[in-house]
Simulated scan of single mutants.
Amino acid sequence: MRAVLPNAITAAALCSGLTGIRFAIDGNWSMAVFAILLAGMLDGIDGRIARLLKAQSRFGAELDSLADSLSFGTAPAIVLFLWALHDLPRFGWFASLAFAICCALRLARFNARIDLDDQPHKSAGFLTGVPAPVGAGLAFLPLFLWQATGEAEFRHPVLVTVWLAIVAFLMISNLPTLSWSSIRPRRHIRLEAIALAGLVFAALLTEPWWTLAVLSIIYLVLMPYAFVNYGKIRRQRAAAKQPAA
């Protein structure tokens, strides 16, 4: 059961992500997004549960990557195409394909590097490129804003096409991005951090679309901070390696 439980959670995440496509076919955009977000939450805990139960395996890692490719690459691409991009069939479909392919390429790159010791971003507590679940959330930013405001401009196929292409590029880029290991609140503000987390959860219950949109924008704003902070760590390491005069 130790080996079955984390893989069962991964399978549940896969089913949740693909169910988002079914809701999108019915035009239920809220449930489509919710299903993919639920897949993201399940994806966030399966690896931790595997480490907690000491049930890590190569099979689990491969299954997780395959599930991520479908839940955070294929499913968002199809949902966004059915939502807005079908009005621009050629370029809209190409943008959807680009997003799904870039998600698969990112996960393949991650698997190829999983056993390498020389990973500068990982050793410094950063990720390389935007992770797949976050990329899916960022891709839905126009949909979040459309649900929150009701403005038809956010559903414009050209806008969504350009935005989807940008997010696809960020997923396969070599930019250092924040990871949970790089977020270390100081001891004297940990109570405030807990309170903030509670308020964010309450905001998700009361104003989910505005909250999701704001969280996506905050992540985008923090990307330059991650780039600058990684550059600082890299310079410090380079200075430490120089021989003493």
Rank of each mutant, 00 (worst) to 15 (best):
L88W: 14
L42D: 06
W146R: 11
D43T: 04
L127A: 11
G137E: 00
A139P: 13
A50R: 12
F59E: 09
R109K: 10
L107Y: 11
A13V: 03
F144E: 05
F91R: 07
C103K: 03
S57D: 11
I114P: 00
A132K: 04
L66R: 06
D87I: 05
D68A: 04
S123C: 07
L37W: 00
H156E: 14
F34V: 13
S69K: 00
P133C: 01
R51F: 06
G150T: 09
S16Y: 01
L141I: 02
S69T: 09
E151F: 14
I36G: 04
M31E: 15
I25Y: 10
G20W: 02
S16R: 06
A104W: 10
L38F: 01
L38A: 10
A124M: 13
V134K: 02
I21G: 03
L66A: 09
Q147I: 08
V79H: 06
V33R: 01
L138A: 07
I21S: 04
A112T: 04
V130A: 01
T149S: 15
L97R: 08
V33T: 03
A136R: 08
L82N: 10
L70V: 09
A108F: 13
P120A: 12
L107M: 09
F94T: 10
A108Y: 14
V33M: 13
R58E: 15
I25N: 08
A12Q: 07
L138K: 12
H121E: 04
L105T: 04
A32K: 04
L138G: 11
F23V: 03
P89F: 13
A11Q: 03
L97M: 15
A132L: 05
Q56N: 12
W83E: 00
P76T: 02
D64H: 10
L38D: 00
P133R: 01
T128E: 13
A77C: 10
D43G: 05
P120W: 14
I49L: 15
A132E: 07
A139H: 11
H156G: 10
F110V: 00
F140W: 06
C103L: 03
W83S: 06
I114S: 14
D43Y: 02
G129D: 01
D64G: 04
R58H: 13
T128R: 14
E62P: 01
E153L: 13
T149L: 13
C102H: 14
S69W: 07
W93Y: 12
L37K: 00
Q147D: 00
D117N: 14
D87G: 11
L105E: 05
A35W: 00
L105M: 15
M41D: 00
F126R: 04
L66I: 11
W93A: 13
A84T: 15
R90S: 09
I25S: 08
T10E: 11
A95G: 03
F144N: 06
A132M: 03
I45L: 07
A152F: 09
D117A: 14
R51M: 03
D43M: 02
A39D: 02
S65W: 07
